[in-house]
């Protein structure tokens, strides 16, 4: 009897403990899962809240909301064309500048620079990514926009635009279609679509270049060495070996930068001029989705507020798709590596 008790009592305690541990483990697992699902909830919620907030505007204007360039609180008619156009054009300019520069930075830091220089320069460039966007905005407004107005803009309007100061049309403006319109402007200020695109480019260069640099370093050394052994130059190795090997991740990095540029608010708001007008000129002020929301939302009511929410929904959907492509592209290289 006694011996029997001695066996069952600890056994029961153990069983109880095992059961308690199993229960605690389950509860703990559920708690963790709940927290992880909050990430999902945040994304769905942001899409849902802006769609719900914009339902009046979507319902009232229908598909015409996308095609209309009207933005008139007086008559309460709103269209998304001007801010959507501004967002797309500033981001496109930013990419046109940032992609080649970032590629150059990544090539220099992974293939050209002496080893002792690589880490400090890379950290310095990454420092640029850590500067808050409001600082870019202030620099853009007080330093870059005046510089742009004094030095870059007159040159562009005189040599490329169709409204030069001295009235004499340059050869380019007279002979190449569209260029004159792109660079013709009467506005004397620096704030413009092009200036905003340049500030955005400076902002996204560190993002794109650090992704590119990271993926360039994943290229197997034996691949590069084989190419060098066949007599390739450094540039040929970069262009014919490194770039094809990392193509999908490089495109992913570019889309990541594009996602940033599309949704950036502060840096753009300061430099874009916030004019709700559709102008073909890159030197005229414009508006982007984010800058329109930042400028108008706190004073908006009724249909205007709904239209701003609808704009936010459009922005969210577009950036979501861009970032989705970016992550899928980046993942393809990761799979290749894991194989």
């Amino acid at each position: 009897m006694q011996a029997n008790d001695g066996v069952t009592a600890p056994g029961m305690i153990q069983e109880q403990r095992a059961r308690r541990d199993a229960r605690d483990d389950r509860l703990f697992g559920w708690l963790l899962k709940l927290c992880a699902l909050l990430v999902l909830a945040a994304l769905l919620g942001a899409a849902g809240a802006t769609l719900w907030g914009g339902r009046e505007a979507f319902g009232h204007f229908g598909l015409g909301f996308l095609a209309s360039s009207a933005w008139d609180p007086g008559s309460d008619t709103y269209g998304a064309l001007v801010p959507v156009y501004g967002t797309l054009v500033t981001s496109a300019i930013a990419l046109l500048i940032a992609v080649p520069v970032s590629f150059g930075v990544a090539v220099y830091l992974s293939e050209v620079a002496p080893r002792w220089l690589r880490t400090p320069v890379a950290s310095a460039i990454e420092l640029l990514a850590g500067i808050p966007s409001i600082i870019y905005g202030m620099w853009g407004l007080f330093v870059f926009a005046p510089f742009f107005a004094d030095h870059i803009k007159p040159w562009l309007t005189n040599y490329l635009g169709d409204k030069p100061d001295d009235g004499k049309l340059s050869w380019v403006a007279a002979h190449v279609p569209f260029v004159g319109k792109l660079f013709g402007s009467d506005s004397p200020f620096g704030a413009s679509v092009l200036a905003a695109g340049i500030v955005l480019a400076v902002m996204i260069i560190p993002f794109i270049s650090s992704v590119m640099r990271e993926v360039f370093q994943t290229v197997p050394t034996r691949l590069k060495e084989s190419a060098y052994a066949l007599g390739s130059s450094t540039w040929e190795v970069v262009w014919d070996i490194v770039l094809p090997y990392t193509r999908s991740a490089v495109i992913g990095g570019i889309f990541l930068g594009l996602g940033r540029a599309l949704g950036e608010t502060m840096a753009v708001t300061f430099v874009l001029g916030n004019a709700m007008q559709l102008s073909p000129s890159l030197l005229d002020p414009g508006a982007s989705i984010a800058s329109t929301i930042a400028n108008q939302f706190s004073e908006a009511a009724g249909m205007q507020k709904s239209a701003l929410m609808a704009l936010a929904f459009l922005l969210f959907v577009v950036t979501f798709i861009v970032l989705l492509i970016a992550r899928l592209m980046l993942r393809r290289l990761a799979h290749k590596e894991g194989r």
């Binding site: 994304l43 608010t265 969210f316």
Partner: peptide, 18 residues
């Protein structure tokens, strides 16, 4: 994990409206 990476670069102004 994938969606978290997207939230990482989602436009902050839209999160503000949310």
């Amino acid at each position: 994990r994938f969606l978290n990476d997207i939230l990482l670069s989602a436009p902050s102004i839209v999160l503000g409206l949310f």
